[in-house]
């Protein structure tokens, strides 16, 4: 299972990471998030060398979601050198996500 990240860890684990970081913004009450979640776990497990992956619960960490202007989940954002480099909103099949993420894991 992919680790849930907190606001306190955001700077050290996401913004200061040397690797690209994929963050899956999700919530318990979001049906499509539950369907994307296992796909994100698989992508994380298959790309441990290239990509760091975390989940962020928007109920518990609303400031981070607000900071990045998120108004829809599931939202997957890739951070590179501390800034958002790619944003994918809405549930997508694994093959589509892999294509969208190709520049980071290809």
């Amino acid at each position: 299972m992919t680790e849930n990240i907190t606001t306190a860890e955001w700077q050290s684990k996401v913004l200061s990471s040397s690797k690209p970081v994929l963050v899956d913004f999700w919530a318990e009450w979001c049906g499509p998030c539950r369907q994307v979640s296992p796909i994100v776990d698989e992508i994380a497990a298959e790309n441990t060398e290239k990509l760091q992956v975390y989940k962020l619960n928007v109920d518990n960490e609303p400031q981070i979601a607000m900071q990045y202007g998120i108004t829809g989940i599931p939202a997957l954002i890739v951070f590179e050198n501390g800034v958002p480099a790619k944003s994918i909103v809405g549930a997508r099949p694994k093959a589509v996500l892999l294509t969208d993420l190709a520049e980071f894991i290809g």
């Binding site: 928007v58 109920d59 108004t71 989940i73």
Partner: peptide, 17 residues
């Protein structure tokens, strides 16, 4: 703008408003 204010799923996204 989808996911940035435009939505098709109130139960998914209502929370942000």
């Amino acid at each position: 703008l989808s996911g940035h204010g435009v939505s098709w799923c109130a139960t998914c996204d209502g929370f942000f408003f």
